[in-house]
Design a protein around this nucleic acid. Sequence first.
DNA 1: AAATCGGGGAC
DNA 2: GTCCCAGATTT
Length: 357
Amino acid sequence: MTYKNLQNFNKLAFQQRLLDWYQANKRDLPWRKDQNPYKVWVSEIMLQQTKVDTVIPYFYRFIEKFPTVYKLADAEPEDVLKAWEGLGYYSRARNLQNAVREVVATYGGEIPSDPAELGSLKGVGPYTKGAILSIAFDQAEPAVDGNVMRVLSRILKIEEDIAKARTKKLFESYVRELISEQDPSSFNQAVMELGALICTPKSPACPRCPVREHCLAFSEGIEQELPIKTKAKKQKTIPYVTLLIKNEKSEYIIEKRANKGLLADLWQFPMVPINEIGWDHLENWIYNEYGLDIKISEKKGELKHTFSHLIWELEIYTAMTSHQQTDDERLCFVEPEGLQAYPFPVSHQKMMQYIEE
DNA sequence: AAATCGGGGAC
DNA sequence: GTCCCAGATTT
């Protein structure tokens, strides 16, 4: 059995069941209080690859701090990064502010409802564009995320590899067929809500599913086998010696990371890629790299931090330096109480517990 | 098409 | 440990 070209699929009944279920069961989320395009936008960026429960407190704080596109456009980038601290994928924060500045400069502060204009903004890809167009502007555009691919792969028994970029376009064409023209906002959110609450990855709650009568995977008992997704390759491990370098005023050296790549523009304690440098050249490397004479003292602990594509193994040492200041713009001596003003990656926030007194 | 880019929670 | 989350961008 298949729904080849959807000719056997009862689209209207499916829409009705789905929308009724959504109205009765949707969660009361802070970005669902109105259709404010700016709030919808911020929520969609935060929700990329991030669970609802994680986003909620960040969303409240961010909207309180930057309540309008103008406030965000005028903010210091480092303040935006600080508000994003711990949320991950930090280029989202930079792209969002760049895009908001573009909205102020080019569109008079009004977020464009034109698909091409909206999609040209930094950080607004195919999913986010469709989400904003449907949720904030009631346009019948697809918004295909992981939830949508999982739900529809089961209902329509689609066996393409959802890890492939090409597969997302296939799902977008199906959504264009299935979407409710009367309420595209609720339709898109309902599919995602179903994926989050009922049609979950591991053990979907099919007995509670409002559209199980439309679901091919359920009728054939293969809901656990879908969607098809190829595995990611495992991460590479990189060992670092990380240094809590203190001067005679009990200030610690921190450095700003490069403005591109991993954890761009965040602050950290100095890290030595020890396999490349070697223990024998460690203090000399620090002098060449940071212009600091240091004396390593004792090992304080270890941390293992896992990213999507690599693993850091951090050995944490304390060290002393006689320097009180530095000319290097990227470096800063900061007293322990002052560290909280800077945005740090989570791994280096965990290092702060090894600072004494 | 594949790699890069975080962090957390569920299992 | 594995998986994956309201993905986008770069290579």
